[in-house]
Write a protein that binds this DNA or RNA. Structure first.
Lengths: 243, 243
DNA sequence: GTCTATATTCAGATAGAC
DNA sequence: GTCTATCTGAATATAGAC
């Protein structure tokens, strides 16, 4: 995906010792951040991986946060656009059960497939988002609230249309669980492989999607807490637990 | 929990300027790690919060990793013991539906209530575990595989007994999703509050547990992927996505 | 406009004072 | 046995060379 320079004259060669150093830095940063987290990776690590000088990173992106910001800018647009497309298509599905499943799929799929360029770009970026939310990065927190909340609301509303008898609040919780499950699967896929004793491959994104969609659709359809069938109060949990 | 010194003579007072500095360091570290993550917090930060000298931390715990290890040692024992107790009780529930719910509750509850001493200790520790799994800390990875896999297997097996017609592999996926949902709720509770437009409080652990249990029980009971009713191949996902 | 050499602050860990 | 003063290396960001 590196654009070949139009002319390879001396001047151009001199001013770009490595073709598109900026892109190389971005790619290296994305790879390292999504693997080790933001805080664990230094600007020096990134520069080294990209074959650049540490200061070169600062020149292109001002700060380490700026670099992260640019990675988000790259991915958020395409990803949310794809989500909107898929959601619009899902809403046109007639059968209610099928529609709900299509909506969930429309939410999950772009997290894996999206990404402007490389194969696995979407997965890598979503993994990065998972790590960033755990690390509580302040820069990212703002981006998320600004960029993703609209999409999240749109999905919750669409789900609510398919399940009008379930209070919106419950659907918020359940779609929140969906995102948590999605993130966790991308962060520690090897745990699935381990606990299944090899009968499942946690890194198989296609399979993960299917399992996640199936589980989520069932969870969304569950009776809400208020109007559920009367249940015994479990001995283990007599009262509410306070944080 | 701070043991009072048997004698408060001059020598004892001199050797302990602050009572139980070791405990103060542990408490400060747990608080900071579970709030900002492991990599974002420096030994100096911890020392300052505990009113200690940075080197004092190294004396008590050798390394920063050692400090983390000790925090895990403190919590894992009580937590898994409580889980075993609750699981044993749950397995004795006769009604299959109720039993399944009790099992899930036995898994989730100790993540909130456990913790040797302070209120919210369990929640704080589980939040820490969530962050650590995202940061991919190598020290923790080993502890988890050693300490938690037995418990996880026990729970999956118990669930499988309640749902024998569902392949164990699917149950592994679904209980994995449970843990992810639990972690994510502890990591970003404010997102629930935001998306619900204030009608839910993400930090209300009691409510979170109820929502999580309800959703998970439904997810666990869903038809497995293999033998589900025949479904249309969704246009959006013609093939498997490769990571 | 792009990158290298350098400055300054701060990290984790040590060796010796109490 | 416990903690303080200090060392060494690495962090981000700058200011100036190309």
């Amino acid at each position: 995906m590196v654009r070949k320079p139009a002319r390879s004259d001396v001047k151009a060669a001199a001013s770009t010792r490595k073709p598109n150093m900026r892109e190389a830095i971005l790619a290296a940063a994305e790879e390292l951040f999504s693997t080790y987290g933001f805080n664990a990776v230094s600007v020096r690590d990134i520069a080294q991986a990209a074959g650049a000088n540490p200061g070169s990173v600062t020149y292109h992106f001002r700060t380490k946060d700026g670099l992260l910001l640019e990675i988000y800018r790259r991915h958020c647009g395409p990803m949310n656009r794809r989500r909107s497309e898929l959601l619009a298509a899902a809403r046109r599905v007639r059968d209610l059960q099928d529609r709900l499943e299509a909506i969930v799929r429309a939410y999950v799929l772009p997290a894996f497939t999206s990404g402007s360029d490389l194969a696995g770009g979407g997965t890598r970026f979503t993994r990065l988002r998972a790590i960033m939310s755990a690390e509580g990065n302040e820069v990212v927190r703002k981006i998320i609230a600004q960029t993703f909340d609209d999409t999240s609301h749109a999905f919750i509303d669409a789900i609510h249309e398919s399940l009008p008898h379930i209070p919106r609040t419950d659907l918020v919780w359940r779609s929140h669980f969906l995102l948590g499950a999605l993130y966790y699967t991308l962060v520690t896929p090897e745990r699935v492989s381990r606990l299944s004793r090899g009968s499942a491959d946690g890194t198989d994104a296609g399979h993960a999607i299917e399992e996640l969609v199936r589980a989520t659709v069932a969870a969304l359809q569950a009776a809400p807490l208020d109007e559920g069938a009367p249940r015994k109060i479990p001995a283990a949990n007599p009262g509410r637990v306070v944080t």
